[in-house]
Design a protein around this nucleic acid. Structure first.
Lengths: 255, 255
DNA sequence: CCAAAAGTGTTGGTGGTACACCCATGC
DNA sequence: GCATGGGTGTACCACCAACACTTTTGG
């Protein structure tokens, strides 16, 4: 019983979200929600697209492992990272029992520019995903509903935006995630009422209309962990990454 | 590398909630929220109280394992069972890396009567817990906030009550969980507005005041899985249990 | 001046809280 | 009849969606 003994194997995967400006059908630039996927280089599921992840190292915390694999596959570091759910149906991975602790993450839109993207890592539009390996399609669907639900009662949209942003950009993020238009007037008031928005005093020039104010989020409100007592506490998994090292395929790849 | 090789071990634990009538300080019978704990019979944490649970068998689903260990320790079967969170800090269990997928469950109050309770299994009042092994105290705190949060936007209180119940009993459950008094008039309207309550037509006699109506929950509303798409779907882990079998201590016990 | 988006004001509906009040039963 | 909770009616307040309206820029 070397490594296929009577034990489930533990993997950690992450659903990563970012906002990308994408040309709309009528040419207007509407932001869209995007997700990076990696191509599987081994069986099972060879060639299929899957969520970035890897086996859990014995001495690494779950959250650190999620942040690290995220960084290894995309080159990015998450602004927001939270556990989503643990998937462990006995038959979800052919051949071997695999239990996956899945996280979801948000990254800044301006970082996506310099994100890795090659034959084996690609960003997909949220409503135009390819066929996924294992049960990853269901996982993404679940992560999407969690993101949408949480966006409405929490203020996490800032994790998808650069340091400063206009009210319209913030609204664009909400509209892209919720997939519906929001009233600009009411949206502004709701956001201002949270007290987490700080007017930088500067304005964005160069538009062909009245220049909008630039805001940033009050850091006093966001790093303070939400009322979830025990876990959560989205630290950034500050695990450094030295070069493009082999990644997860030291021996075999999990789902 | 027999079984202490470089892999984390996977355990499944469950925080079980039930309502018990408990004599109040002034003699009045107010329901209270109770949690069963098991005494650890091995190191680490020998003698301490801990959440019921066990190692994950290779061919059993996470939810089935949670339901089974729940049944083995308490003799009860859950009316509600949902995944809570996965705890996996590297140092949470001395000596060995253990990752615990934790569920939370609700059981009917009338079943608690015939629940197991001996030297090694005991029910504790939610606000009078003993010192717990490992990080189980934090886990219970987290489960409590989840229960409280979910009670307010979902209708899960029925899982803590018998088939039929009065409006006051239902309110008593909410008050016990939320730890505050609720306005009877407003509570009634709120509950009636959900449309999930069915008046059985019968009334509870024997009180020394106007006999209250007996309700039951509309089964058309509760088994229908909530809008959580992927996981959830609280099936009852229908794994039979043949007698008081050795349980999890075939080789060693997890946390 | 005009287009276009920023930003403000006002109104009506909805849901929740507080609280006054009547109803039906046991004793 | 009277104490006790069961059950109803109603006024008020906070929040939110809808939408009319004013402001400020670029061209």
């Amino acid at each position: 019983m070397s490594q296929h003994d009577a034990q489930a194997r533990l993997a950690v995967s992450t659903v990563i979200f970012a906002i990308s400006p994408e040309p709309d059908d009528d040419g207007a630039v509407r932001p869209s929600l995007r997700i990076p996927l990696v191509r599987r280089l081994r069986e099972p599921g060879l060639g299929r697209w899957a969520l970035p992840g890897g086996w859990l190292p014995v001495h690494e915390s779950l959250e650190a492992a999620a942040g690290r694999t995220l960084n290894e596959t995309t080159g990015l570091s998450p602004r927001y990272l939270e556990q989503l759910y643990t998937f462990g149906e006995p038959d979800r991975s052919p051949g071997e029992r695999v239990v996956s602790v899945v996280y979801w993450a948000l990254v800044h839109s301006d970082e996506v520019q310099r994100a890795v993207s090659d034959d084996n890592v690609r960003w997909f539009d949220e409503d135009d995903l390819p066929e996924l390996a294992f049960d990853h399609a269901a996982i993404v669907v679940y992560a999407l509903t969690r993101l949408r639900t949480k966006l409405e009662y929490s203020r996490i949209a800032h994790a998808l935006l650069p340091e400063t942003f206009t009210m319209a950009e913030l609204r664009g993020v909400h509209e892209a995630v919720l997939r519906r238009r929001l009233d600009p007037a009411n949206f502004r008031r709701t956001m201002e009422a949270t007290g987490t928005l700080v007017d930088t005093g500067r304005r964005l020039a160069g538009t062909r209309h009245r220049p909008p104010a630039l805001y940033r989020f009050d850091p006093a409100h966001s790093p303070a962990a939400p009322p979830s007592p025990a876990p959560a506490a989205p630290h950034h998994a500050a695990s450094a990454l030295e070069g493009p090292r082999p990644g997860t395929d030291s021996k075999d790849t999990p789902e």
